[in-house]
Design a protein around this nucleic acid. Structure first.
Length: 422
RNA sequence: GGAGAGGUGGCUGAGUGGUUGAAAGCGCUCCCCUGCUAAGGGAGUAUGUGGUAAUCCUGCAUCGAGGGUUCGAAUCCCUCCCUCUCCGCCA
């Protein structure tokens, strides 16, 4: 959510900023809604004041006939108040709905562009493997030893789910353990959170009310499966006031993520790149506004560290205005090389939300004069399934084996190479 | 799931219809005093949102959440959520 005072006083600049996303901020509608709200609010409150005064006078009045008169007046005011309150509630709700639909303002340094084609590469790292044999994609490699199985998952659930077996299940586990351990060493606190969340939490981080179709809802309960750990972890401090000495607060959580992937029919149908359920290790920070830019760089570096240590070739990009997510002011994506696709694919998305989420969640920092909103930052460190797939593809050998990255060998019980021929 | 008891400010805790946004204590901040320390005295100390561009000033709201009764609700009624105790069930 954006600062309403900014909307009132700098509507033109906001319109220009949001235009870069391709979002049309309708100043006229906003001003109408706000004006309506203002009139009703002022009227309601002055009527309420009148009612409060009368109520006190009724209590103190000794004279019977004046008391009766005041009681009569008070009753009238009370009835009027009820009516106008209903109108005010509607006006407030309309305004709020409008505000919740506005995306975050973009940082100055976000490059302009319409779609992902205009994202800017910051740098590429690692060596793209040069295979002298016909390579397999990760699904084919996984199926060599029935380590990745899609038939069973369809039986159990439906498409876009997967069953991992034996060494693949173990590698999957090893990755999450390794990532968690590494981030904890880098100063993040490990945290375990609910995988089902309420509406308010999703509204807090920005998934609701706009993107309900991307979520899995648990019927009967007003609960949703989390699309990312960002939701439960960020909402830990909803409605809380933090002390500035305890900042920055850094958390790392490993959770499954559930996404309906509405509108992505036909995309990435092969392999485990796009699933309804996938695991992710997520980094979340609560920081002082002054530090958020630097903290985003740090968090991105921490995510990159995993790719470096796994020796996976990747690149860092900054998303252009049209591709930056609804709640984000600036996003770096880390993309890992997929030899079978001869392209880089997103494996981490690191964003600075500035005060957009904390305004929705009401997360403040205690200050001597006036409390201020904190800034939130998060990013994947990393998506487990895609990391697994990238290792399989980049580390495959002609013999049909996969070399385990050094840092994972201990986590794999000493195994240095997966021999997958049956 | 059944029976009972509760949810009040940073914390403890009073308050069962009318200057109670809320006593008291603790904590915290500032000041005074005491040559250090300990103790003592005084003042202050919630959040949100309006009227304002803003200090000041001031209105309104908030005693788990949402409704209702009433001129007036922390206090009465209803629904929901949560916590605790006992029983049942379960990993």
């Amino acid at each position: 959510m954006l600062d309403i005072n900014l909307l009132r006083n700098n509507s033109k600049e906001i319109q220009i900023n949001l235009q870069k996303r391709g979002f049309d901020f309708d100043v006229n509608t906003f001003e109408k809604l706000d004006l309506k709200r203002k009139k009703l609010q002022v009227d309601t409150e002055s009527l309420q004041e009148k009612s409060n005064i009368l109520a006190k006078e009724v209590a103190q009045e000794k004279n019977k006939s004046t008391k009766d008169q005041k009681l009569k007046d008070a009753k009238k005011v009370s009835t009027d108040l009820k009516e106008i309150k209903i109108k005010l509630d509607t006006a407030l709700e309309d305004l709020n709905t409008f505000l919740l639909g506005l995306p975050n303002l973009l940082s100055e340094d976000v490059p302009e562009g319409k779609s992902e084609e205009n994202n800017k590469i910051i740098y590429e790292k690692g060596i793209i493997p040069d295979f002298s044999f016909k390579i397999k994609d990760h699904q084919e490699i996984g199926e060599l030893s029935n380590g990745i199985n899609f038939e069973e998952s369809v039986t159990i659930a439906k498409s876009r789910f997967v069953v991992l077996r034996k060494e693949m299940a173990k590698l999957h586990r090893a990755l999450s353990q390794y990532m968690l351990d590494t981030h904890v060493k880098n100063g993040y606190e490990e945290i375990y959170v609910p995988y089902l969340v309420n509406k308010k939490s999703l509204e807090g981080t920005g998934q609701l009310p706009k993107f309900e179709e991307d979520l899995f809802k648990v019927s009967d309960e007003e609960m949703y499966l989390i699309p990312t750990a960002e939701v439960p972890v960020s909402n830990i401090y909803r409605n809380k006031i933090l002390n500035s000495e305890e900042l920055p607060i850094s958390y790392v959580a490993h959770t499954p993520c559930f996404r309906s992937e509405a509108g992505s029919y036909g995309k990435d149908t092969k392999g485990i790149i796009r699933q309804h359920q996938f695991d992710k290790v997520e980094l979340v920070k609560f920081v002082h506004p002054e530090d958020s830019e630097a903290e985003l760089e740090k968090l991105t570096k921490d995510a990159e560290g995993i790719l470096n240590n796994l020796n996976l070739p990747y690149r860092k990009i900054i998303l252009c205005s049209g591709d930056t997510g609804f709640a984000s002011s600036k996003t770096f994506d880390l993309e890992v090389w997929f030899p079978s696709q001869k392209t880089y694919r997103e494996i981490s998305s690191c964003s600075n939300f500035r005060d957009f989420q904390s305004r929705r969640m009401k997360i403040r920092i205690k200050q001597s004069k006036e409390n201020i909103l904190c800034h939130t930052i998060n990013g994947s460190g990393l998506a487990i399934g895609r990391t697994l797939a990238a290792i399989l593809e980049n580390n495959q050998t002609e013999q049909g084996s996969v070399i385990i990255p050094d840092v994972l060998v201990d986590y794999m019980g000493g195994t240095k190479e997966l021999n997958l021929s049956r």
